Amino acid sequence: MASQGTKRSYEQMETDGERQNATEIRASVGKMIDGIGRFYIQMCTELKLSDYEGRLIQNSLTIERMVLSAFDERRNKYLEEHPSAGKDPKKTGGPIYKRVDRKWMRELVLYDKEEIRRIWRQANNGDDATAGLTHMMIWHSNLNDTTYQRTRALVRTGMDPRMCSLMQGSTLPRRSGAAGAAVKGVGTMVMELIRMIKRGINDRNFWRGENGRKTRSAYERMCNILKGKFQTAAQRAMMDQVRESRNPGNAEIEDLIFLARSALILRGSVAHKSCLPACVYGPAVASGYDFEKEGYSLVGIDPFKLLQNSQVYSLIRPNENPAHKSQLVWMACNSAAFEDLRVLSFIRGTKVSPRGKLSTRGVQIASNENMDAMESSTLELRSRYWAIRTRSGGNTNQQRASAGQISVQPAFSVQRNLPFDKPTIMAAFTGNTEGRTSDMRAEIIRMMEGAKPEEMSFQGRGVFELSDERAANPIVPSFDMSNEGSYFFGDNAEEYDN
């Protein structure tokens, strides 16, 4: 993207840094990872977990959730003011799984939030270390993106479920800051804005008074975040219109849905970061690795190297396929839920299948599930090659597409044709070009129609051997075009429920 120079890199967003050079960025990201790792080690000690239990991804998720809940100030305040039966607002906890007599047992633990905050700050040299908290939120978000298709949420806001490739980060909490905003897809931002506008339509006082002023500035800020994701002048001009509207209503909703559809071809720039579970960072720190000293990046080879040398386990339900569970977590670790499966298959070195073909449910185990038949197995999170994460949407291309997802959002900077089903997408653009945004709409449609099938995206960008740390010898991959490109292809993934 041309304006790259004016933006802070995501590592800076990730670490609240002012302008830093590459070495400083690597050190501050490393410091953040160190903090998460030290916190995780301490929690495993508190909970008396064995090494194996500490490497269980379900335990990692519970521990991450506990610290996120302990620092969720708004919710904590709300819980104190609106006490609900049987919930102690000062405590947080969740299921911890232990191996007892050759069987997995679930144990519900409860801790004072104050105590968890103390352990977290102690692991982070006394700081609140917001960057580390956001990092864990993005890992949870990436896992949700890989596990669930947001059909219901899309339909509720009037969008087409086939636009799911635009929904990265749709389950990120509001408090995820600049680093969170960077990884949100165009569809996620559109959905947040539509929800806001709908509230304004239904509630006369939404934009009024002292609160209304705050609401208005939040609305304009979200519009600017979305505008910054678009790469064409016409899309940005249309966002200006939406932002400046005196009284946002149905016309703005129409414009936003139009823009979301246009992003299936004229893709937005959305950041991709490899955020790993805390149970990967903990053992690495415990083994003596100093992330701050060595430096770390979320968008280069580092996460690949770390996963190459990590042992992570997962509980497996009786009829689940461990290899499929591994694929789910591998995609989440690489922030690749909406990437082209052919690119992923090449990088991973084994075939990556669409969601609907995987015999696996989510990673988390519900409290009512029976533990008797639970097994555990090693997650295979290694890769054959590594590639640089991208934040450009890439230019655009036609490809055989599917009944489910009709476009992709690249996660890796790797040369390819970008699949999208042009006739299906263009069919949504018939007729409606009147109104105050008509010239911009016409211009956007013209650009979409001009998108050429034979153009290559990320020209000359390749993948790298894991021994090639400096990215000196790019390998331009070859793809098996007979395979499906979309992950949520004609899909039956479970729906995400809060």
Results as ranks from 00 to 15, higher is better:
residue 4 Q to T: 02
residue 5 G to H: 05
residue 6 T to K: 13
residue 10 Y to G: 07
residue 10 Y to K: 15
residue 24 E to V: 02
residue 25 I to R: 01
residue 26 R to K: 08
residue 34 D to P: 09
residue 42 Q to S: 04
residue 51 D to R: 00
residue 68 L to D: 10
residue 87 K to A: 06
residue 91 K to I: 06
residue 97 Y to L: 07
residue 102 R to I: 04
residue 104 W to F: 02
residue 109 V to E: 08
residue 110 L to G: 10
residue 111 Y to W: 01
residue 112 D to I: 07
residue 117 R to Q: 02
residue 119 I to Y: 10
residue 123 A to C: 03
residue 124 N to P: 03
residue 143 L to M: 05
residue 145 D to K: 06
residue 148 Y to K: 11
residue 151 T to M: 13
residue 152 R to I: 06
residue 161 P to R: 02
residue 165 S to D: 01
residue 165 S to K: 05
residue 170 S to G: 06
residue 180 G to D: 05
residue 184 K to E: 12
residue 184 K to Y: 08
residue 186 V to W: 07
residue 188 T to K: 01
residue 196 M to Y: 07
residue 198 K to M: 10
residue 198 K to V: 08
residue 202 N to W: 00
residue 212 G to E: 08
residue 220 E to C: 11
residue 231 Q to G: 01
residue 233 A to K: 04
residue 234 A to Q: 13
residue 238 M to E: 02
residue 239 M to G: 01
residue 239 M to V: 02
residue 245 S to Q: 05
residue 247 N to T: 00
residue 247 N to P: 09
residue 248 P to L: 03
residue 250 N to V: 03
residue 254 E to T: 12
residue 254 E to V: 14
residue 273 K to I: 14
residue 276 L to D: 12
residue 278 A to R: 14
residue 283 P to C: 00
residue 285 V to N: 14
residue 285 V to L: 03
residue 293 K to W: 10
residue 295 G to I: 10
residue 301 I to S: 06
residue 307 L to G: 04
residue 312 V to H: 14
residue 312 V to G: 03
residue 313 Y to W: 07
residue 314 S to Q: 12
residue 317 R to L: 02
residue 318 P to Q: 06
residue 324 H to Y: 14
residue 335 S to T: 09
residue 338 F to S: 03
residue 347 I to S: 04
residue 352 V to F: 10
residue 352 V to R: 10
residue 367 S to L: 14
residue 367 S to D: 07
residue 367 S to Q: 05
residue 374 M to R: 14
residue 378 T to R: 00
residue 382 R to E: 09
residue 385 Y to E: 12
residue 389 R to M: 11
residue 394 G to N: 08
residue 397 N to T: 03
residue 401 A to G: 14
residue 403 A to V: 03
residue 407 S to R: 07
residue 408 V to L: 05
residue 418 L to F: 12
residue 419 P to H: 03
residue 430 T to D: 04
residue 441 R to N: 11
residue 441 R to D: 08
residue 449 E to K: 04
residue 455 E to S: 13
residue 462 G to M: 10
residue 471 A to I: 10
residue 471 A to H: 10
residue 493 A to P: 05
